[in-house]
């Protein structure tokens, strides 16, 4: 089963804190999304392994853009 992490709001990815293959725990910070001039931590939705990262640092994303996939 895989879980997609979606952008909760439009903004810019300022930091990616994990890499593919990393084990993450639920509610662990995986990304930072800057929106309205505020850095917002994005947390993992579930325990698992990072399968894929679909964004780059500095990338502008719209709401519901898939940021990474956890399985």
């Amino acid at each position: 089963m895989s879980d997609e992490v979606l952008a909760p709001m439009p903004g810019k990815i300022t930091k990616i804190l994990v890499k593919p293959g990393d084990d993450v725990l639920e509610d662990e910070e995986v990304l930072v999304l800057e929106a309205m001039k505020m850095d917002n931590p994005i947390f993992a939705p579930s325990n698992g392994k990072v399968k894929e990262i679909r964004v780059k640092e500095g990338e502008e994303v719209d709401v519901d853009h898939v940021l990474l996939v956890i399985e």
């Binding site: 709001m9 509610d27 929106a35 309205m36 505020m38 917002n40 931590p41 947390f43 939705p45």
Partner: peptide
């Protein structure tokens, strides 16, 4: 509001 919201639920983004 955003900071408080995320304290209580890590999936909660109230900023917008």
């Amino acid at each position: 509001v955003q900071r408080e919201g995320i304290k209580y639920n890590k999936k909660s983004y109230l900023l917008m």
